[in-house]
Each structure stands twice: as C-alpha cells, then as structure tokens.
Computed example of a mutant assay.
Amino acid sequence: MNSDKWVSVKKIYKGWSSESKYIIKDCNNVKYILRISDIADYDKKKHEYGIIKKFSSLDFVMSKPVDFGICNNGKNTYMILSWVEGEDLEEALNQMSEQEQYEAGWRAGKILKQIHSIKVDDSDINDQSKKEKMLHKIDLYLKSGIRVEGDEAAVNYVRDHVHEINRLPKVYQHGDFHPGNLIHLCNSDVGVIDFNRNNVGDAYEEFFKLESFAVEVSIPYCRGQIDAYFDKNVPEIFWRILAVYVAYSSLNSIRWAIKFGQDEVDGMIRRCKASLEHYDNYKSVIPSWYSSF
C-alpha cells in the first residue's frame, strides 16, 4: 500500500495490545487501521495476517487484510487492515432495548459459529497441554499474594473438572470475542475487529469472555450469543466446560492485571466475585444470569 496517498494518521490509545495502532485515511477518504509491532514478532504477526485472510473469506463484516510487511529500517512489522465503520458495540448496547441487545448477541453468535467452521491446518495445532498450563497458572495465582474470599470454590472446580476441556475438535478462535471487539454497524448488523489474540483451541473457550466483560454490559446480548451459536439447543457439556474456563480465567486474570495497575486488579477481583455469585460458588454450572432474561 502506497503511504504517499495517506492524508492523515491518528494514534489509537484504546485496548490492551502492546503494539501501536493508528487510523489512517487516504486521499480518497478511505480509512484503514495500521498496526505496528516489534520485528521480533514478525513470524507471529505474519501468521496472524494469514489467519485474518482465512476469516476474510467468511460472510460477515470484519477488518480485512490489506497489506503486511517490514518497516522502519527493519525494526518493525506493519499490518494494514480495512477500517470497520460504526460504533463500538459495547457502547451501542447501552442505547438499545433488551430485545435489540439480544438480537445483537444473536448476530454475534452466528458470526462466531462461522469463525469456528474453518478447518484447522495440522501445522497450526499446538500439542502443548492446556490442562497443565491452566493448573500451573492456578498455582501461580495462589502464590501471588492476592486472594479473593471464597476463591477455593473456583480453584477446586478447575482442579476437579479440568479434564473436561479439549474434548472437542480444535477450531480457529478469534481469541477475544466480546462486545468491546465488535462494531455496531449502521444497518444494525455486527462487524468484527481485533484478531490479534487469535488461537487454536476449544470452541467453548471463546465464551468465557462473556462472563469476564459482557455480562456487566448486557445480559440479553450474552444470552443471544449463546442461543444463536447453538440454535437454542445448548448442550449440557457446554455448560460444564465453560464453567471450567470461567473459574480459571476469573482467578488468572487477577494475576495478569497486576502489570496494569491496582485499578485493573480491583476490576478483575470484582468480576471474580461476581462469577462466584453467578455460579453459586460453582455448585451450579449454568450461570444465574442466563435464565434471568
């Protein structure tokens, strides 16, 4: 892509990513997103660009691949993607009726089902044991010095049920699928952005971000996403596996947030406490919010 045709470059500050992000506009008033990463991440970012190409063949609005390469005298990699025009879904949900929120979740659930439909290349399947990694990180949480009252229920649930995970075929994951990474389009459809956490793994793992970030925004949206994915026939195994991921992430995210400061740690502690309540200290595998709408 010829940068001589760019007429404006504006830095984006939102998000957790370590890479630098910019909105660029060309002489034809077309907008793109530019992502700059360290050259040490070249292989990782090249693979990410390839995954985005796979997703771009599907039938939904998303940040499509435009260009990828090396810049700044070999110090950085760049990725240019199409810009998805619209409003952050996380913000738009606050202006919708509960039925409209549910319908937005329904559209998102159908998109997620499409993402998971792509056949995974054998070369992309990681043989690393997810179970051992999760148990190790639970141990790190317990040693971190930051504990949540009643967290033993989550710890024990993970340890007792972690064998449930990875029982399904591997899928390509978006990796961070929640309203904060979705766009509300002018026709009320949903667009998808931010694929930088893409991965290969259990399809049901994608849903724990509902508990982490979406329930506090819109319960109808969360219900809609789940109902759409399963055509309103949610299997019991889904709830058992999801509860493992929710319990694990509710603890691990507290330790993860330390590097971002006390406010973020406090936010993750609040979410952990909410999860314990929603799952009745993991005596139930179906969160209470699911039946509240």
Rank of each mutant, 00 (worst) to 15 (best):
M1P: 00
S3R: 07
S3G: 03
K5Q: 11
W6Y: 13
V7L: 01
S8T: 10
K11T: 12
G15C: 02
G15E: 00
W16P: 08
S17D: 08
E19G: 12
E19T: 07
S20L: 14
I24K: 01
N28L: 09
N29C: 05
K31C: 15
I33T: 11
L34R: 04
L34E: 06
I36A: 08
A40R: 09
D41K: 12
Y42C: 11
Y49N: 15
G50A: 05
I51S: 02
I51V: 15
I52W: 04
I52P: 12
F55T: 04
V61W: 03
K64E: 09
P65I: 06
F68W: 03
G69K: 01
G69S: 02
N73E: 01
K75N: 14
T77P: 10
M79Q: 13
M79N: 05
I80F: 04
L81T: 14
L81N: 14
W83C: 12
G86C: 06
E90M: 09
Q95V: 06
Q95T: 13
Q99R: 12
Y102W: 13
A104P: 12
G105R: 08
A108W: 03
Q114D: 04
I115M: 03
I118S: 04
K119L: 13
D122A: 14
I125P: 01
I125Q: 03
K133S: 15
L135R: 04
H136D: 15
K137L: 10
G145E: 06
G145F: 01
I146R: 10
D151G: 13
D151C: 14
A154P: 00
A154F: 03
N156L: 03
R159Y: 12
E164R: 08
E164H: 05
R167F: 10
D176C: 06
D176H: 04
N181P: 07
L182A: 06
H184G: 06
L185R: 11
C186W: 05
N187S: 11
V192Q: 01
I193Q: 09
D194G: 10
R197Y: 05
N198A: 14
N199R: 04
A203G: 02
E205D: 09
E206D: 02
L210K: 03
A214F: 04
A214V: 05
V217I: 14
S218A: 13
S218C: 12
I219H: 09
Y221S: 13
Y221T: 13
C222Q: 06
G224K: 07
I226Q: 02
D227E: 15
D227C: 05
F230C: 11
D231R: 11
K232E: 15
N233Q: 13
E236D: 15
I237F: 02
I237S: 09
F238Q: 00
A243S: 08
Y248S: 10
W256A: 09
G261F: 07
D263L: 06
E264M: 12
I269G: 14
K273M: 14
L276Q: 07
L276W: 08
H278S: 13
K283T: 14
V285W: 06
I286L: 01
